[in-house]
Amino acid sequence: MPHAQAIKEFIVEEFLPDMPARDLADHDDLLEGGVIDSLGLLKVIAWLEDRYDINTDEVDLDPESFKSVAAIEAFIADASRTRAEAA
C-alpha cells in the first residue's frame, strides 16, 4: 500500500492529533467512528486533489471511498487509472 502512510499521517494530523499514525489501522472505519464528518470529508477530498492531482469532477465521490485508509488508497488508484485512460 504505497500511499497508506501519507494518508494516515494526514488523517492523524487533521483529525486525531493525539494519536500516533502507527495506531491507525488500514481498515478502521473513519466515518462510523466519527473521525471524519461531512466537513472533514471535504477536507480529505481537497487534500487528495492537491496531493495526488485528482480531478474530482472525473471520479465518483461515493462516501464509501473514504471509509478507511485502505478505501482512500483504492480511491487514489482508481482515480489515477481514470486519469491515465483519459490521457
Rank of each mutant, 00 (worst) to 15 (best):
M1R: 15
A4F: 07
Q5P: 01
A6M: 13
I7Y: 03
K8R: 15
F10C: 01
F10M: 06
I11H: 00
I11Y: 00
V12K: 05
V12I: 11
E13M: 07
E14D: 09
E14M: 09
F15R: 01
P17G: 10
M19R: 07
M19W: 03
A21L: 07
A25L: 06
D29R: 10
D29P: 14
D29W: 06
L30M: 03
G34I: 11
D37T: 15
S38Y: 08
S38G: 13
L39N: 13
L41W: 08
L41G: 12
L41N: 10
L41P: 14
L41I: 11
K43P: 05
A46P: 10
A46Q: 14
W47Y: 14
W47A: 08
E49P: 12
E49K: 13
R51D: 11
Y52P: 13
N55G: 04
T56K: 01
D57S: 11
E58G: 07
V59K: 01
D60Q: 10
L61Y: 02
L61I: 07
L61P: 13
P63I: 03
E64I: 12
F66W: 02
F66G: 06
F66I: 06
K67W: 00
S68L: 04
S68D: 02
S68M: 04
A70N: 07
I72K: 00
A74Y: 03
F75L: 01
I76F: 02
I76T: 03
I76N: 01
I76M: 02
D78Y: 06
A79Y: 04
A79T: 07
R81Q: 10
T82C: 05
A84P: 00
A84M: 04
E85T: 05
E85K: 08
